[in-house]
Structure formats: structure tokens, C-alpha cells
Simulated assay, not measured.
Amino acid sequence: MSGNGRRLLVLLACVLVLACVAGAAVWRASDRAHAKDRVQPGGPTVASGAVSLTAGGPQRIVFRSMAWGPHRDELATVPAGDPDGPRTASGVKCLRFYAAGGTGICLQAVHGPVSDSYRAVVLDAGLHVTRKVDLAGIPTRARVSPSGRMVAWTVFVGGDSYAGTDFSTRTSILDTRTGALEPTLEDYTVTRDGSRLRAADLNFWGVTFADDRHFYATVATGGHTYLIRGDTATKAAVTVHGNVECPSLSPDGTRIAYKKRVPGLPADAPWRLYVLDLATGREHATAETRDVDDQAVWSDDHTLVYALPGDYGSDLYSVPADGTGAPRLLTRSALAPAYLP
């Protein structure tokens, strides 16, 4: 083939690549536009308005609204007494969210022409951005300490599901007062039964704060998961209980809600929602018998709130923490709730 012929083939190949890139960009833009225009049949009423993370007045819930329409994925709020009622949408979009003490952590997608990147955004009580941090993977968990000073998040840096074993996570903690960022908990010294865990496969996720210094989280190694209690001052942690994932500390600090892998369940749906008494080490199942792949939230000292798959992404359910009662649908088309006292 002549030199001109080869140059022509190269030119044609470049044109085809550019056409594919342009087509992908158009398809993504079109898909987003159509999603924005669709309105969920029989869905909740959603209107733009001011959303604040300031405590005071009747208790409210702030969450990611999953309802189809122009406000999908925005942070929205409803009265805790009317959790499936009309929503006020903020205009701030998050994939994962949590708030406490007037501080919010919002894990966002940054849409590009071909692929997305992700970032963590710290919000003040008025949802104004105070800090941005680029993320190394897909957002999955987020928490804030009760005072609002410390924030934490977990992302998938390999894989995109907790169901199997072929995944890797990275968990970071940020001090919003000093600006100090711990990019990964893998630098912590972890002790189990008096001996340091030195395994190369240590994997951390799902922080829940006790205060501005102490937290609980999950660590995995050798195919097993453990609840750890960590200390941000000493950069050390100790295992507390086995077979614990995505812990959530009760408001009174006495119990941990978590998802537990139960033998005999399907490999892609292995979890049940459990509660651990930290003083006695006793655990019990809640009345929720479906697979719960979420980091539950305590709406008060007696009730757990969590997400399950729904027609438009996910719905929020509640169940008593003591193992009695029955699950009930709380809020349709919602994810990642935070209760503001």
C-alpha cells in the first residue's frame, strides 16, 4: 500500500474514533435530558426552596431525592413527621450524603463527555461549599461526627459491590476545623486479640463516629470482616466483634446497627440487619428479613432507617432496633437520609 493510502486509512480511523466519542457524548446528554423531563407517576410533590442543615424546630429529614423529574438526585427535605410528604429540593446534587452538627458531606459525580469522575464536597449549614476533595473511586458511604467537625467517606477503587470478595475500598477522614485529611485508614495500626494485623489485604469501610476523636468502622482481611474502634489521635484501632459491615452507632452510643452475612443466604444477597450491644457483646436480628445492603441510620434511640431497592432507585424503610415489630415503608424514592434534631 502506498504512503498516501496508509495516511488515508489512519485519517479514516481517527474520524471513526471521534465520531464514536461525539456519539457517546450526545447519547449521555440526551439520556440525562430525558431523565430530567420524566416525572414519576404518582410520585411525591417536589418544589425548589431553601434547605438548611441547621438544627432547631421540628425534626426534619434531608436525603437524596430519587423521584423522577427535574429535581432527581438533589438534596431534599421533609418533616420527620411526614416522611413521604411534599419535598423541598435544594438544587445540590449528591450520590451519597450525610449531615450532623450543621455540616454536610456530599459525594458527587462530575460528568465528563465520556466518563465521570467523583469528588467529596463539604457543605455548611446553608449548603454552601467549604471544601472539595477529588475521589479515587465510586462513592459508597459517608458520615459526619455529631459535632459536625469530622467527616468521613468510603469509595470503591476496585469493584462496585460489597457482595463478593473482589473489591477494594478507600476510606478517608477529614477534620473540617484544621483541614487535615487522612487519605486512607490503611496507615492505622489495627490490633486483634492483642496482636497487630499486618495483612496486605486490609480493607476499611463504613465509618460511624462516636465523637470527634473516636469512631467505629469495618475492616476486612482473609475473607473475614470485623468491627473496629478507631482513634484519630493515635492512628490506632482494635477489633471489637466479628462479621460486622457498615456499622452505625446509636445516638446514645450503646449499640451498633450493621449488616451481617448470614450463612445459607444467596451470595449476591447475603446480609441481614442486626444490632450489637457494645457492653455485653450480644447481637440480635431485626425484624427486617430482606437483604439490606446499606449503612443504616438511627432516627432515634429505638428505630433504624435504611434503603432497599425501589422502582425508581431506592425507598427508605424503618424497623424497631430491638428486634420486635415489622418493617414499614417510610419514604419512597429516597436514599442516604440524615435526621436533623
Rank of each mutant, 00 (worst) to 15 (best):
H128G: 12
Y98W: 10
T103Q: 05
Q108C: 09
F97S: 01
V110D: 14
V121F: 04
A109M: 13
L127M: 08
Q108M: 10
D116E: 11
L107H: 01
R119S: 12
H128F: 08
V121R: 12
L127I: 02
H128V: 07
V114Y: 15
A125R: 12
T103E: 05
S115Q: 12
R96M: 11
I105F: 03
A100K: 07
G101W: 11
A125C: 10
G101S: 04
C94Y: 00
T103H: 09
A99N: 04
C94R: 00
L107D: 01
G91Y: 11
G126P: 02
Y118D: 05
A109T: 11
G101F: 07
G112P: 08
V121T: 13
Y118Q: 05
A120K: 00
F97Y: 14
G126A: 15
C94T: 00
S90Q: 07
R119D: 04
L127K: 06
G126K: 14
S90R: 07
S115I: 13
L123I: 01
V92W: 00
C106D: 02
C106V: 03
C94E: 00
H111E: 12
A99L: 02
V110P: 08
Y118L: 07
Q108I: 09
A120R: 02
L123E: 05
I105A: 08
L95G: 13
A120D: 04
D116R: 11
A120H: 02
R96H: 12
V110N: 15
R96E: 11
R119E: 12
S117L: 08
S90L: 10
L127S: 08
V92M: 06
C94Q: 04
A125N: 07
F97G: 00
A99E: 00
G126V: 01
R119V: 07
Y98D: 14
V121N: 06
V110C: 10
V129F: 10
D116T: 14
